[in-house]
Design a binder for these strands. Structure first.
Length: 894
DNA sequence: TAATTCGCGTTCAATG
DNA sequence: CATTGAACGCGAA
């Protein structure tokens, strides 16, 4: 939803919505447990404002609070914004000594600008006259090194008074045929880059920025000087403090808002805010829990539910909202779950509807999100939607990005279930429900010693983006930002995509295996079919990042005609410059070395405290997210430094390293069973040969080949990316199998896991026979249960995610979409990202949403097919087909 | 405003 | 009605 229009709509709605003020309560709600306080709204500063809060326009409700602007500050830099009213960048600084947020408008005189090749005439005049443009400030001649040519280049800096003017003036110049650079960078990021600031770190700021007592570690600096590559030492010393400095710990509050629902199947619209807010909850990181309720005739405390928090009842919705807002904005950091799209705009528009002036509401609508004038807003819905974090930091533990799903997966705690429609529940139940949501939101940031918060802070420091930006953008924006900052650090011109693509050939030189892909990826060896005892899995530690580092891969080092010395990439033939170090190669190398040589060790160092170890664990996790994505972004057309030859070279080198290692392995008479991208499965190897191959890879390729797993037993189905390994404790590692997939019904997953226990108990080949007998019995049992309908609907449910809105499916209508459309018809809203649970039915459509289905609708034979394919995958390892095991005739139901 | 390719299983829908 | 390629979702790396 375009946030700007929210504001406009609210403004228009303003005069229609007045005079909706709730009548004074005729009676107080009945006494309940705990006894609620009934408040009349009394602002702290002026009692004369008390009546104003419930009638007529509010005069200076907000301005009696300090606006927070200061000339100088000392504390953690959390965000930089551009404020149009001031016409300046404003830094938000968290000051730990007062535990508050202050705002420091720029005093360094920084202004928006962009670069062009239009040079000033000898007489000082301009080839294109920009003086007529209102926001034009001045021109300056500067010199930057062009990373593509490797040469210094004179450029004209076009300085303006307003970031919007960058857009106008760049067009003026490009229309005249001049080239422009760095015109797409958001102004506040330019401010950070030009001042070489590191968000998340402490500063003293007044007319200039000075780092404030950054923590250093003597030991670490020694280690860097000793262990890091020559070209990275200086950079590493400069970077080290960002991993050592403790993270800021400001007071935080999580909030959640409940609104009266407009009717069955309809949801409140934040753009209109027609329906009253009936409850606002605040839960902070020091244990305070508050809930502000709206009095409604007929809705009372039942006394049945204990509310774990302070409860207050307001007879005026406006007073409730203003008071809630007053409390919320005292906190430097505000957390929500979906606050960008719901809670915050709702509060804003609702207050406008209730007659409060825009200027009196300390909420601000920025370009991409909604926040507070003097506090930061972190929307966890956006944060947990960041794919790189989902997989590398949270281990893919959640799939759906709802509060319910994320909290259940990460905290083991769900939302409260309402006993009836929210409009009708008693006030105690409403309060408990509302509080629980805010508490879950707070916990998602605090669990595991503030893992989420610390991750955000570390990524701020690495990416050089403010908290609000970093928690709302994907990994490619982080990497772009880090690289831009490094370009400024080295006085390098940031090239345009066109500069990069026109430098050398961008055409792919390898054919992808899958159609519609741009270039070839990794090798997957064909595994055998069978049962193998004693299997060692070797894998390359961070193969692709190591390739990027060792081969000096970067957008400016690949196919660069300005280079004199080259190394050719095997198979694809791209030429890698060896004259100088590539910037992304260095960044990836730096993070990789920090992670491997320092922080993975520190995370396990028993001489450190538990708290320190957890911090370093988070540090290494943040680095992992970064380096793992570093290859992929170069293959993404949307990435600012997109370079197909870089991505293609990475995979080509990866393939050649794997193949060479494979070749060496066979020379050593090692029996390779399987391998995928960066791994090799070796059958019962002699120890010496293993040591030999590890040494070989180290010397020949300068890469770490590690023993990743030692399997007592591996079952190969004969399919790629599909096997089960058992370690010495008998616990199973299942890869790729039907039984592992999230869209497989639970009863199958459970039954397969049971069966795997049988298999895991095999000690040697002699046990195979009797295991098969047990398996046969198990399958028969499943069949019988299915036939007798002993599994519940939820065990039979198939859960599939809508990758787009149901209406967007044009070519096909998959089953989960059919079920989703069914739900939509029943008034249940369904949209992109939702997980649809359905069962297979005997009717013509063949599917039904679980919540609308009965056990008798279920088509048993379809489920038997599912069971078959799940079991067949590991039966294949024994060379047995399903029919042989189950006896085909017996298993045809009905 | 978007990290990549490789591989498998199920289902849809076009084709005859 | 059988066959087949494409669409789709999900996982491995």
């Amino acid at each position: 939803m375009p946030v700007r229009s929210v504001e406009a709509t609210a403004a228009q709605a303003q005069h229609t919505a007045e005079a909706k003020e709730d009548k004074r309560a005729q009676e107080l709600p009945k006494a309940s447990v705990p006894a609620p306080a009934v408040y009349e709204y009394l602002p702290e500063a002026a009692s004369s404002a008390a009546s104003a809060a419930t009638q007529g326009p509010v005069e200076s409700w907000w301005s009696f609070e300090q606006d927070g602007y200061v000339d100088s500050a000392s504390g953690y830099l959390m965000e930089v914004r551009y404020e149009g009213d001031l016409g300046r960048a404003v830094a938000l600084i968290y000051d730990p000594s007062t535990r508050s947020m202050v705002k420091v408008p720029d005093r360094t005189g920084h202004k928006p600008y962009f670069l062009t090749d239009m040079m000033i005439n000898d007489d000082g005049g301009m080839p294109v006259n920009l003086n007529n443009y209102k926001s034009f400030s001045n021109l300056a001649v500067i010199t930057k090194r062009n990373p593509l040519t490797g040469r210094d280049q004179k450029l004209t800096k076009v300085v303006v008074d307003d970031p919007l003017a960058v857009k106008t003036l760049r067009k003026v110049l490009t229309d005249k045929g001049f080239r422009v650079w760095e015109a797409d960078i958001k102004y506040y990021l330019n401010y950070i880059y030009d001042n070489q600031l590191i968000p998340g770190m402490p500063y003293d700021v007044s007319t200039s920025w000075t780092p404030k007592e950054w923590r250093r570690s003597e030991d670490l600096e020694q280690a860097i000087k000793k262990d890091f590559a020559e070209d990275l030492k200086q950079m590493a010393l400069e970077w080290a403090p960002i991993f050592e400095q403790p993270s800021p710990m400001p007071p935080m509050v999580a909030i959640d808002v409940e609104v009266l629902e407009p009717g069955e199947g309809h949801f409140p619209d934040p753009a209109k805010a027609d329906d009253p807010v009936i409850s606002v909850s605040l839960v902070d990181n020091e244990g305070r829990k508050q809930v502000l309720l709206l009095y409604r005739p007929g809705i009372e405390f039942t006394g049945e539910i204990r509310v774990n928090g302070e409860v207050e009842i307001f007879d005026s919705e406006r007073a409730l909202l203003l008071e809630a807002l007053r409390r919320i904005t005292r906190y430097p950091v505000v957390l929500t779950f979906n606050g960008d799209n719901f809670d915050i705009p709702y509060i804003y528009n609702r207050l406008v509807n209730l007659g409060v002036s825009h200027d009196d509401i300390p909420i601000t609508f920025l370009q991409d999100y909604v926040t507070f004038k003097k506090s930061l807003h972190m929307d966890l819905h956006k944060f947990f939607d960041i794919k790189a974090l989902q997989s590398y930091a949270y281990g893919n533990r959640y799939r759906e990005k709802s509060l319910e799903a994320v909290a259940e997966a990460l905290l083991g705690q769900g939302k409260r279930v309402l006993s009836k429609m929210i409009n009708l529940v008693g006030l105690d139940e409403l309060a408990a429900y509302n509080l629980q949501d805010a508490a879950l939101t707070m916990n998602l940031v605090m669990f595991d010693n503030y893992l989420t918060w610390n991750l955000a802070v570390l990524i701020m420091r690495i990416s050089k983006m403010g908290l609000e930006e970093v928690t709302r953008s994907q990994v490619s924006a982080w990497i772009r930002s880090t690289l831009y900052w490094e370009h400024r650090h080295r006085n390098l011109l940031i090239p345009s995509q066109e500069d990069i693509s026109s430098m050398g050939s961008q055409a792919p030189r390898s054919a992808a295996v899958i159609k519609d892909k741009k270039y070839r990826g990794a090798i997957v060896l064909q595994p055998p079919q069978g049962v193998f005892f004693n299997v060692i899995v070797l894998d390359f530690a961070s193969l692709y990042p190591s390739v990027i580092r060792n081969w000096n891969l970067s957008y400016e080092t690949v196919n660069n005609p300005y280079c004199t010395n080259y190394i050719e990439v095997p198979e694809v033939g791209h030429r890698i410059c060896s004259d100088r170090k590539g910037i992304s190669s260095q960044l990836v190398g730096l993070l990789r070395d920090f992670r491997v040589k320092v922080y993975k060790k520190k995370a396990k160092d028993k001489s450190l405290s538990e708290g320190e170890r957890r911090w370093y664990e988070t540090v290494q996790a943040a680095m992992k997210v970064y380096i793992n994505a570093s290859y992929g972004v170069f293959g993404n057309e949307g990435f600012a430094l997109y370079s197909l030859p870089v991505a293609e070279s990475v995979t080509a080198i990866g393939r050649s390293v794997l193949l060479d290692t494979l070749h060496k392995a066979s020379e050593l008479n090692l029996h390779i069973l399987y391998g995928d991208t960066d791994s090799l499965f070796i059958w019962d190897p002699p120890k010496e040969a293993m040591e030999e191959i590890i040494r070989y890879v180290q010397e020949k390729h300068n890469m770490d080949l590690d023993i990743d797993k030692t399997f007592r037993l591996v079952l190969f189905s004969g399919l790629k990316k599909n096997y089960v390994g058992f370690d010495s404790e008998g616990s199973a590692v299942v890869k790729g199998m039907v039984a592992k997939k999230s869209n497989t019904p639970d009863f199958i997953k459970d039954e397969v896991m049971e069966a795997l226990k049988l298999l895991g108990s095999m000690q040697g080949p002699e046990d195979i026979e009797k295991t098969l007998v047990a398996l046969r019995y198990k399958v028969q049992e499943i069949y019988n249960r299915l036939r007798r309908r002993e599994y519940t609907l939820s065990q039979l449910a198939i859960e599939v995610m809508l990758s787009k809105d149901p209406k967007e499916y044009r070519k096909n209508t998959p089953q989960h979409v059919k079920a989703a459309l069914f739900l939509a018809k029943e008034g249940v809203p369904v949209s992109k990202g939702d997980i649809i649970a359905f069962v297979k039915t005997k009717d013509k459509v063949g599917v039904k949403p679980v919540r609308l289905a009965k056990l008798s609708d279920v088509d048993t034979s379809k489920y038997l097919e599912y069971v078959r394919s799940a079991f067949e995958q590991f039966l294949l390892a024994f060379g047995i087909r399903w029919d042989e095991l189950a006896g085909a005739r017996k298993l045809v139901p009905e």
